[in-house]
Design a protein around this nucleic acid. Structure first.
Lengths: 164, 164
DNA sequence: TGTAAACCTTCCCATCCTGGGAAGGTCAAG
DNA sequence: CTTGACCTTCCCAGGATGGGAAGGTTTACA
């Protein structure tokens, strides 16, 4: 099976398949005489596995560990579960951060007339030295304080035209 | 004021101040005779503004637009509000995505014994061709389907040692 | 059979934001 | 005067993905 077919069958783009191979997440594909990579069902299985793990927000690195766990027939389910729950906890941290942001923004927006006048509490807040140190923002800052940066689940959603 | 002081006063690293200048988010700083950048209170204000906007998940690009809105004394508050609410909507999309992930993972984990035995529904799910197409995952896939990718708020949280 | 389309290959580039670090100049304090 | 703390520019890295060029191969069709 060519890389294109494997891509179609797994939902992982050919580009990414080559990338995963290059970083060692996937074993080097067998080459045919013409130099084309050749895949079989087992490869497609791995690709689907990867795809699903990525969909669930696992980083490529974490996905590699999951793959290793999968291949290790003797691993304890407790290990896998712990791994997954750690990821869940990471996700929940991110969710809290995002929720704090929306809370703050909604709060600011609720005080904004949203009419033709220039006065706008949203910008005023951004422009205020001590902004964000007020009561309703307390949690926001609590979360904000931690250094954001995790491998797992770098989520980005569809860009709005207006934001561009 | 040297860049170091400005960084300290604003909470934006010197590295990032130079970067923001390089991409045009900030005006080019005045240089002193020795070539050092020189900042005043207005610059620090801008930096704080940027810092706060970024904290609220606005992309650098969006932050630039907010700055422009701030400087435009005649803009309508409605414009700012709409801008902010669009961002809120982006954030909420991301939150939904993350929540779908945690739901699915928690669901899988709840079926995992979490003991010394190797059987693990979590890995089984990842390894199953049609995985994620079942009832309780319906919403997950619905969200998953959209192309993720937004400038605003690329959130990543603190990496866990174990995840590394 | 010829040719064009659809593949495949590798390689480089861009994104987005941030930090690390090197090599070198400058300043302030001891 | 020396030392350390600054500052400067420039390059590199990551994480994950896509775009695209330049070139070889296979396939389908006229």
């Amino acid at each position: 099976m060519n890389i294109g077919k494997a891509a179609e069958a797994s939902g992982v783009s050919a580009k990414m398949i080559r990338y995963y191979e290059s970083i060692g997440l996937l074993a080097k594909a067998v080459r045919r005489e013409n130099g084309y990579r050749d895949y079989d069902e087992r490869d497609v299985h791995d690709l689907r596995f990867i795809k699903r793990a990525r969909t669930l927000g696992f980083s490529v690195e974490a996905t590699g560990e999951l793959l290793a766990l999968w291949r290790d027939k003797s691993r304890a389910s407790a290990d896998v579960k712990a791994f997954a729950m750690r990821h869940v906890s990471d996700l929940e941290t991110k969710i809290s951060e995002l929720q704090a942001m929306t809370r703050t923004l909604r709060h600011l927006a609720s005080h904004c007339h949203g009419d033709a006048r220039p006065e706008c509490p949203i910008l005023d807040d951004l422009a205020t030295p001590g902004a964000g140190e007020t009561e309703q923002d307390a949690q926001v800052n609590g979360v904000r304080a931690r250094k954001p940066r995790v491998a797992g689940a770098q989520i980005r959603s569809a860009r709005r035209p207006a934001t561009a």
